[in-house]
Design a protein around this nucleic acid. Structure first.
Lengths: 178, 178
DNA sequence: TAAAAATACTCCATAGGTATTTTAT
DNA sequence: ATAAAATACCTATGGAGTATTTTTA
């Protein structure tokens, strides 16, 4: 059977972007860290697969055809989506095995926090969420300063405060409720 | 040197989509027309590359992890963009070497049409645009019926009418001006 | 235990490279 | 004449397959 059922390849998208940007196959060599030959092959294969010409070639380099011009943003979309996937994975990896200690006084701890924590835990099951119950606002601030908590819930105007020394790579989703 | 600098592969995106949809590696075989082994390899490689687990595996099949759930729409975006690229290419190919004959009466033909045609020709240089000048509206309709024109410009309320028998694959961009 | 996924192993198509030739200005 | 792209040819990575073993509800 035939290998690689994918007609269009990702490196072809990268090549398209780079050559379009550099307006030259040769100059795209540096950006792609690929030989001129490979870039030529890649674009040629892409053009053959699509049955169209993507670039006008000349001594002064390569220039996008009108079709190439319309295809370019879609190729960019693909690479952006790929980046997004890697970002999501990095974030998730950063969260693996992490823990968050939340300091809050009793009234908050018993009202909306359980639901919020449940929701969070459903999204990030590998993160241990623990609660440091406090009787007064001062105790919350104390817990943060003594690094017995990573996240503290306080009254307005300082509703949410957080320490930078948590044991997790948590970089967003600092849950708080109005 | 190493082959394939792309860490993430398109067929892995397809596999992710299919397995997520089928909630099973085995059932995705039909949809992907790929062996169970290959699908397993593809997902495993993707998970290894991203450093995360995309599916919970069990006897009843496979279910997306929270990260997998967040990555899924991006994978879909990639495939949608690919489709769009092929669509653009198909359209451009259909236009290759085509021609459009426009029937219009003199006043229109000399006022806004030249600019419109120039713009169109810049976008689709391989298409021959010719003008069939008419003195009266009835002549335009006649030219269309006798297939001496592919596109006719008439007065409101029937501003634009077009024949289905053109010598080009033109399927959109029926240019008209208010 | 049975259905599903993972592994072991093989194969060859193809991405990628070097060296050279062709093309366009 | 000369810079750029295309082509020829080669190598070996990794995608895909069949057969089998390992999981897990």
């Amino acid at each position: 059977m035939s290998r690689s059922r994918d007609k269009l390849k990702l490196f072809q998208m990268r090549a398209l972007l780079a050559v379009a940007e550099c307006r030259s196959f040769s100059r795209a060599v540096d950006e792609l860290e690929l030989s001129q030959s490979s870039i030529s092959h890649a674009i040629a294969a892409l053009e053959a697969e699509l049955g169209i010409s993507l670039f006008f070639r000349g001594r002064q380099g390569a220039q996008l055809t009108p079709v190439g011009e319309r295809i370019l943003p879609q190729a960019r979309n693909i690479l952006v989506a790929l980046e997004a996937i890697e970002k999501e994975a990095d974030l998730a990896r950063g969260l693996e095995g992490g823990s968050v200690r939340i300091a809050a006084f009793r009234s908050l701890a018993t009202s909306f926090l359980p639901a919020t924590i449940a929701h969070f835990s459903a999204q990030f099951p590998s993160i241990t969420v623990s609660l440091v119950e406090c009787s007064y606002q001062e105790e919350v601030e104390q817990a943060l300063q003594e690094e017995r908590a990573d996240l503290g819930l306080l009254h307005l105007p300082t509703l949410v405060n957080y320490s930078q020394h948590g044991t997790t790579g948590l970089r967003r989703n600092h849950y708080a409720s109005g």
